[in-house]
Design a binder for these strands. Structure first.
Lengths: 214, 214
DNA sequence: TCATTTTCTGATTTGAAAGTCAGGAATACT
DNA sequence: AGTATTCCTGACTTTCAAATCAGAAAATGA
């Protein structure tokens, strides 16, 4: 009773809501919005289906709440890039891609969600663009454009380069089930991950850089 | 009555079935298996929903029938590659990627389907691997391995390279809705398409080649 | 303790999409 | 023409998942 008790039992609701959001993010990203059912999410979170509706008005709102968990990840990335704002743009771009890969590995949900909704279009993509990925995409494209203007990067359309780099970087991770089926390989092994990082950062990004003229 | 009549009115069924398959491919690839409804496909094909069930037992079989339309595309690609079997592997690989891009532009359904099912896994991916993309994937990986062995390509894992190249090549096309939303760009414009082709074939593929030591 | 609020659930309703079926219309066959 | 076959449809049943609701259980505060 005296001192070391986890002070304040606190309301239990928020904690349950958090568990639900986590389960929802996992299932939405693995299966997409339609295939993921409220019943499955409830089961995964260890609550009844009605509890989902107690904490979140409907499936759409649960989806958005689940996505908002990724905001922290994006913000952290932004913060780290901000700190390197003085470096030459091509150095910043390489750093951005390294961060992108790190996020793709540690939070594969984000890449899968973007791929799913980015293909389908519609209101969920609009929401993602406004709240999660739009500013980031445009910031990266500006970076690429700056690198082009400084002569460090080959002059391809900046937006196309950024989207292509992201698709290439997330491809092996998103398509892990296909890698398994077609090649019997598990791309999440540490060795595979390291080779992948060099492939993207050195080989592919290297191909975009202007050859040194010095 | 005499001569020039379109000989043999022919059975009408196959033609209707073909229209249904086309509508199904379009909708399945744009929306995924679950979001595409039988009612929508029927409307798109201009027939009643019951007609779908007359020609195809259930939704799964319609999906497979729709996919089989892409077999001709894959076979043609294979034929063209076969004809260049004598060229050095890195030349064949570049040609394969050029063909891949051409298919991605002309039949965007294929890339979207592969992305959707390749992420989700499950029985539809198994089917695709067995009937459509597995042999092609493995053939391309062998090509990449040969190019590595001959010293023309940097020694990254062949399967990873192939999947990454495909993801990069199809990325801008698959993610056209996101390009529109985040950048206001339409990647299907001819100019964009040409820049995209050079980006993939020259810059990215170039980054994978060993620098000339001669 | 007792009242009040928060949190949760089982049972039920609603809605939407897949799938079935009996029969009508069109086509082909003799 | 008459018959058989193929093709198609409207109306219906079934299934499944989202959403609602009345009230129980748990936590909180006096």
């Amino acid at each position: 009773m005296s001192v070391a008790v986890a002070q304040a039992p606190a309301r239990k609701g928020p904690q349950t809501a958090a568990r639900i959001r986590e389960a929802a993010l996992e299932l939405f990203s693995r299966l997409g919005f339609e295939r993921a059912t409220m019943a499955e999410i409830a089961a995964e979170a260890g609550v009844s289906q009605a509890t989902l509706h107690y904490h979140f008005a409907d499936k759409g709102q649960l989806w958005r709440a689940a996505m908002l968990q990724l905001r922290a990840v994006i913000s952290e990335e932004e913060r780290l890039l901000e700190a390197a704002a003085d470096a030459p743009p091509e150095v910043q771009l390489r750093m951005a891609m390294r961060l992108f890969l790190r996020i793709s590995w540690n939070h594969p949900a984000l890449g899968r969600i973007v791929a799913l909704e980015g293909m389908a279009g519609g209101e969920r993509l609009d929401w993602l663009d406004a709240h999660l990925i739009g500013p980031r995409n445009r910031r990266l494209a500006e970076l690429a454009q700056a690198a082009i203007d400084s002569g460090a990067l080959k002059p391809f359309p900046a937006a196309t380069m950024i989207i292509t780099l992201q698709a290439a970087g997330a491809g092996v991770i998103n398509l892990a089930p296909m890698m398994r089926r077609s090649f019997g390989l598990d791309p999440s092994e540490p060795a595979a991950r390291e080779a992948h990082e060099r492939l993207i950062l050195d080989a592919l990004l290297g191909g975009l850089l202007q050859p040194r003229t010095t």
